[in-house]
Write a protein that binds this DNA or RNA. Structure first.
Lengths: 206, 206, 206, 206
DNA sequence: CATGAATGAGGCTTCATTCAT
DNA sequence: GATGAATGAAGCCTCATTCAT
């Protein structure tokens, strides 16, 4: 196993534990055991627990951005409506893929308020939401230009709500995570996206 | 100061600190100092740190429910559209009122995954979102009945997104807290609500 | 309830708890609750926990001495052998009477080594064993004088063993307390006393 | 120093302190200082204070059993009387060897009533006294068989008294520990053993 | 490089005692 | 006298981090 692989191994061990037991509830010993290495070795790869946590955060942000990027680049949709639906679908897929890691996001959010790295984390989250926002804005603007969408929409003001709703649907799904069929995340995502699109589209008589 | 007042004093001290430094980052000593009492006194009112945290959570949920209830009961709006706007406005007011305590919510969310009380917290959050959801559902259904709103809307599926978006707008505002003018929460709430209402309403030519 | 009665009520509550949970394991609050009084009231009657404990010790010593005295004074036995048997029987009766309080003696013994009052306690125990010893010595000497007992016995050297054995039989019975029929304390006391008397008596062919 | 030696070092430090200041009066910090290690290190070897105490108890029982065993195995005495004398002598030697640790036994006795491990401790004490008892029984029975001892002795009933008296002589010696010449433990042990043997032996005219 | 034994700062909690009512 | 709310000293224990091997 090379350096980079070992570093990732530690990071994934940390992520699994932070997700399950929270940052404060996870000990460096737990992480070392889960990663199958010695307790001291972790410190060869990460300066300390805080930094390790921050590294998992950075990894997560990069991962999330990649999903967004991939979703857009592979998005050969004919209409902007379709583009939005496909984007929403990617978010849904990502959420479902990593449902058990969802608590990690909650840890990151909480860390944005109180961790040693709070300022950095807040900054990165801001940038992340801006990126997502810019993608949405560009799709909606394109929709306005080609008359799919209503031209009096205040585009800048609506995107935080849309992107945020996706997060929040994930959160509520998490609350139901151990209830089978307690929460139909797919239906909720789709229903919400339908509503948004209906709000965006130019009206025709119905 | 009577028993109840003192208990609340401790709780508010705890809330301020949990919000600023997180649950793990706050010591019982800090709380006692902030509350202006002796270290041991806290334990006369709360069994321990965990229970104190859970008490702040319960307080917060009750407080939030009261805001929602008050918003509805004083809501003499003519139309359902208006009702939704007023509800959204109440959420906005509440968010702005307690912006500095917003991180507490992040702590609660994180605690839903890893705290000692995780199951109870998840359960309470579920119930809370259900209550908010039911209010929204009743408004929207009423709107459908009186032909304000489109009757093909899948009401159940959209409410988690709407309520969630409000939370998430608060979250993003939090990321910008400390940046003056970095995020116009009022404009964002309004813009998003406009979009939702446009999505809900029966169409007329525009 | 007058002063003295209240003081005793507190003391008996303390004794019951010290016996069951040990000195260190008993809190002043426990004692107050058991005695049915307020926590502060205890301090009106006893200076502190240590002193309260010492008071129970003094009470116990006085109680034990009274048993010994009564046993002797009512002891109208014809022979010294009989006197010893009756004394042993009194010890047995006392042990059985207060079997559940036996752990208190263990606490007193332990306190003779490490309590704040260790020197006083040791001193009082010494005096107590000396009193018991003197009673035994006087019986045995009388037996020697009247030729019941062997005249080459080193009386001073044997009494600590005899009195101690009685204690130790109580201790072993305590280890079996809760096992029904695990230890027949009466039979053991009697058997041992028989042996001692056989050791003391002038020999006749058997 | 290897693992086992270090563990023992901690245990002996604990024993010295438990003996001097009692279990409750000894802090983990005291123990660490006495053992010449860091406060946290103790917990690498023992799970907590209770377990450390229990470990000292187990050590003490094993140590005592070894003394008893050794005493028996090296006991090439011609007669059973001699065997008893040698056994009693071993007990005496052990008592004198560890006179300053005697209070530890008092702590163990007290712990048999109120410690976290009370049931285990009682059980182990029972077994210990049974072992000692069986040794005494076998010697006495042998003495009866070879006509040294009187055949109407109720062997089972007398051994708790004999073994217990030895303990109790140690206890009384402890009360005098610090008085020079206050208590001649050797003379007392010998005198008591003489009495017992006189009680056991088949009588001849004296 | 890897390890895990050692460390001690720091946290939570208990509880004997005080004192205002 | 009687009370029990308030206190803070003191204890047990955890765990991030270091460092000798």
């Amino acid at each position: 196993m090379n350096q980079k692989e070992k570093k990732e191994k530690i990071m994934f061990a940390a992520m699994a534990l932070f997700s399950k037991k929270g940052f404060a509830g996870t000990s460096m010993k737990d992480i070392a055991i889960k990663a199958g290495i010695g307790k001291g070795t972790t410190y060869e790869y990460f300066k300390g627990k805080d930094q390790l946590f921050f590294a998992t955060f950075e990894w997560f942000i990069e991962y999330s951005e990649n999903i967004a990027k991939k979703s857009i680049s592979s998005n050969e949709a004919a209409s902007c409506e379709e583009k939005l639906r496909l984007f929403s679908q990617s978010v849904l897929d990502a959420l479902k893929d990593s449902e058990e890691f969802y608590p990690l996001i909650l840890e990151f959010w909480a860390a944005s308020a109180s961790s040693k790295y709070r300022d950095k984390i807040k900054e990165i989250f801001k940038m992340f939401y801006q990126k997502i926002g810019r993608i949405l804005i560009s799709i909606i603007n394109q929709g306005i230009e080609n008359k799919e969408f209503y031209d009096q929409i205040d585009v800048d003001s609506i995107v935080p709500g849309i992107a945020g709703a996706w997060d929040a649907i994930g959160l509520q799904a998490w609350f139901y995570y151990e209830d089978n069929n307690g929460f139909d995340i797919a239906k909720t995502m789709t229903g919400f996206t339908d509503l948004i699109i209906r709000g965006l589209k130019n009206k025709q008589k119905t």
